[in-house]
């Protein structure tokens, strides 16, 4: 492992991610766990873990992003997740385009320019129906483990249209469908479609500039990528660690502070 010169932390609504980079901005270390409302304590425990795992005792600059970024008193700088995701993805993939980030409680579309700069963006953060929480809630209702629901949805031959545009009402609709004897698999496929249609509509509202890229924790679900490709008609490119792109981008900004 090369010497880590900077750290980035993404305090998301569902998970907290920390990434350490070397002087060249390469990924060297990372850690992720569920979000704790006591943010500063959690950041302290992350920093402790960083020291323990890497053996580093020197202080390095930390940049914070994510919805809880303002609560990270240890940070040298705070930057929005839009800028950080763009920086992280551009560094990993080496080109601009349209980035979709689907997080636990929001989703974003970011147009990244040829030099890695944010050109435009759109966010959905008022309605859970366009976020990972939509699938999480409904998976719970269907009693399908979250990490299996994508595969189950892909494997389904049939698909049921979910008409409710609200997460809570969608749950009621699921209960009604089950009561009418509809199987779980087509319901799951319909739920994924419902989420993706909203996300792709947001892409269209801002204007798709290929290639289409994807980041965020929800990307671990294989149905998301497949259905975005189906709905947008564009192939989707993934960075190596899509869930860590916000923290990675923050670390790259911290690296600029470290190396001057």
């Amino acid at each position: 492992m090369d010497k880590i010169v900077a750290l980035g932390i993404d305090v998301g609504s569902t998970t907290v991610k920390m990434v350490g980079v070397n002087a060249s901005g390469d990924f060297e270390w990372n850690y992720l766990e569920g979000s704790d409302p006591r943010v500063e304590d959690q950041v302290d425990s992350f920093l402790q873990r960083f020291r323990t795992e890497t053996g580093m005792t020197d202080s390095v600059p930390l940049v914070a992003t994510g919805y809880g970024r303002k609560l990270v008193g240890q940070a040298e700088k705070i930057v929005t997740e839009i800028t950080c995701h763009a920086k992280g993805v551009f560094k990993q993939l080496g080109h601009g385009g349209t980035l979709i980030d689907i997080g636990g409680q929001d989703s974003k579309v970011i147009i990244i320019g040829e030099e890695g700069q944010v050109v435009d963006f759109a966010m959905n953060d008022k309605c859970a129906a366009g976020t990972g929480r939509f699938l999480e809630n409904t998976a719970g209702r269907l009693r399908v483990p979250l990490d299996q629901m994508g595969e189950v949805a892909i494997a389904a031959r049939d698909e049921v249209a979910i008409s409710s545009t609200c997460t809570v009402f969608a749950e009621s609709e699921i209960i009604s469908l089950i009561a009418h004897g509809v199987k779980v698999e087509p319901i799951l496929k319909g739920l994924h479609r419902s989420l993706i249609i909203r996300v792709v509509a947001m892409v269209r509202s801002i204007g798709l500039i290929p290639p289409l890229m994807l980041s965020g924790g929800v990307v671990k679900n294989p149905a998301i990528r497949k259905m975005i490709e189906e709905e947008s008609g564009e192939p989707v490119i993934l960075p190596e660690q899509p869930q860590l792109m916000g923290a990675y981008g923050a670390a790259l900004i911290a690296q600029k502070i470290a190396v001057g």
């Binding site: 919805y67 929005t80 997740e81 839009i82 800028t83 050109v119 963006f121 953060d125």
Partner: peptide, 14 residues
């Protein structure tokens, strides 16, 4: 809302 603040913050970063 914080979401509005984030959007404005991101725009100023651009």
């Amino acid at each position: 809302s914080n979401q509005v603040i984030t959007r404005i913050g991101a725009f100023l970063e651009i």
